[in-house]
Amino acid sequence: MDNFKIQSIYIGENCNEKYCKVLKKNRKYTFYSNNPTEDINLYGDNINLCALVGKNGSGKSSLLDILYRLINNFGYLLFRGVVMPGAETPKFIKELYASIKFKIDEKDLELGCEDTKMYLKENSDIVWDDEYHGEVIKDSKMEGKAKGYFDTFPSSENDNKIINIASKFFYTIVTNYSIQSFNYSDYEDEGEWLHNVFHKNDGYSHPIVLNPFRTIIGIDMENEGELTNYRLSAIFLKDKEFNKANKEEKKYLLLMGMT
């Protein structure tokens, strides 16, 4: 990947007020001006920085929260039916009407959500769409063996499709050490989606992760240090495992986010 940019976030007319807060409906919020300054390579190749600037209370965090909700819903629909042992069940967020436009290399892409329906466009053509059908349905056949989430049932035929669509998106690592951010009580009327993004163990398949890990009492820095060591160990071990795997095993490892 030589080029990646999130270009804009659009909030639809029917988006629920609790998501918008001070943000305007039926408005596109762009991240880049038409007159960018001269490119200066200060941080190395293929590194792109963009700053979101505004007064306190102007909606910076609310705008990013829209992005997080979109990615959460996309991950839910894309990976539903894939059994992930040990992972918390993601929650789909309804009444969200928004979209993000982004660029990967020379491709212009757009991810949109209209309540229970979602789509992904590549150069204006829809390459993926899906719909949320209801509450989570547990697969009784997997009882006691593994945890998964289903509002439609899984099919191994979807593996290649999932990999192909996931390759057209990006992984989001949100790092926010502010004590006042991501308090569960601020999102309690939206269900448990935020709680379940924090409390997960899915091999980084769900396309967003929030750091550092929080509970209702705050951030445990000693626990953060231990988690960092676990992640580094897993990277070294899985890299060795991936290099030894055959073609079919590599496909599975990629699907489950193990590399």
Rank of each mutant, 00 (worst) to 15 (best):
K145Y: 06
S124V: 05
G148E: 10
I66H: 01
K168W: 03
M84F: 11
K94Q: 12
L67F: 07
L96R: 03
G44A: 10
G148V: 03
D202E: 09
I165E: 10
Y10T: 14
K238W: 00
E95P: 05
I137Q: 11
V53D: 02
G148I: 03
V209P: 00
T259K: 08
S233I: 07
I235S: 07
D45N: 13
E122A: 09
Y177W: 04
N56V: 10
D239F: 07
V197W: 01
I217P: 01
E249K: 15
K145P: 00
L77E: 08
S155L: 06
D2P: 01
T152K: 06
V209A: 05
L109M: 11
A166W: 01
E248I: 04
F236I: 04
G134S: 11
A51I: 06
I137N: 11
T175F: 12
L254Y: 01
G134R: 09
K107G: 10
M221T: 10
N14I: 05
L49S: 04
P90T: 09
C113L: 13
E122T: 08
G144R: 03
V174P: 03
F150T: 00
I71S: 02
N211S: 09
L63I: 04
Y204Q: 03
G54S: 05
N3A: 03
K101S: 14
Y204R: 04
L42P: 06
S58H: 06
T259H: 05
G203H: 03
E122S: 09
L194Q: 07
W128N: 08
E222N: 10
D239Y: 07
G112Y: 01
D115E: 13
S156A: 11
D239R: 09
M258F: 12
D130H: 02
F169P: 05
T37A: 13
S233P: 05
N176I: 07
L194C: 07
E106T: 13
N123F: 10
P207M: 12
I71F: 05
N229K: 14
W128S: 04
E143T: 13
F153H: 01
H195D: 14
D239W: 06
H206F: 09
F102V: 08
L77I: 12
K103N: 08
N196F: 12
E135M: 05
Y32T: 02
D2F: 10
N35T: 15
R231M: 08
V82C: 02
L237E: 11
I6Y: 12
I40Y: 02
D139E: 10
K101Y: 04
G148L: 09
L49G: 06
N35W: 15
K5D: 12
R69L: 12
H133L: 15
F170V: 13
F153I: 00
S185N: 14
N158R: 13
S181Q: 12
